[in-house]
Amino acid sequence: MASSTHLDFEKPILDLYKKIDELQALSDKEGLDMTKDIEQLTQKAELLKTKIYENLEPINIVKLSRHPQRPISGDYIENIFEDFIELHGDRSYGDDHAIIGGLAKFEGRPVMIIAQQKGKTTKENIYRNFGMPQPEGYRKALRLMRFAEKFEIPIITLIDTPGAYPGLTSEERGVAEAIALNLQEMIGIKVPIISVVIGEGGSGGALGIAIGNTVAMLTYSIYSVISPEGCAAILWRDAGMSPLAATNLGLISSKLKELGIIDSIVEEPLEGAHTNYKKVFTKMRAFLKKELTKYSKYSHEELTNQRYDRFRKLGKYTEA
């Protein structure tokens, strides 16, 4: 944890570990036997850690989902897949850097990856537009999905965006139309689509590549109709209310699983994906393998029908 950026809710745990370190140093220096005290404190720290992480407020999960050291799409592509060949451009306007796509091999078989890509440094983030796609990103995604369909290649989409880019250029080139068309066309794609929210699932900008046969989330990712900050600003007229907005919006994975919005949760280490990349890659690999095996047995018609029914049934209302 030492090299990581710390979040405010982690402070009590960090304080305890600091104390343990101090005791250890003292015991080394003075030659005192403090093993028992240290053991006790360590145990206490572990318990506290479990308690804190198992009862995280949604706003803290929001912070984890945006953690600067959290694995981004490129990390998954590099570590889970082989022979990634990036394919660029929407054939109409340009190449969006916030959505990357391309062919790769997964466990020996080809897959098409479509992924929203943030950066880890400021420079990277500027290049990736902070993971906020413009219309050409969605259009590139659809082009590559159609390509995959033509050659019976299953599609994996990784979602990690604060939202589609709210800018003049984005509006002028029709970001709403680009997202809408993906929602419509992805329903009919005749190969399996597995979608996983790995960080931020920001509203329509996330949904625009998330029409999967299966839609999953990592434990500490979020998926929301609006950011808690945006929601607080509009409904409360007070951005300070975003912790409450985060709770009320029901944007965390366990809640969305309960509501039936997502199908599965891909488990993260207790302290978040950023603390143990290897662990989360292993879980992700196992999950993708299971899903791809399952859908490989589906016919074209079964795939499109299953996907249609999956989204058709969503939404609670009362009917007299």
Partner: peptide
């Protein structure tokens, strides 16, 4: 919440 997003 997300139930509304899914209507899209």
């Amino acid at each position: 919440g997300m139930n509304s997003l899914m209507q899209m």
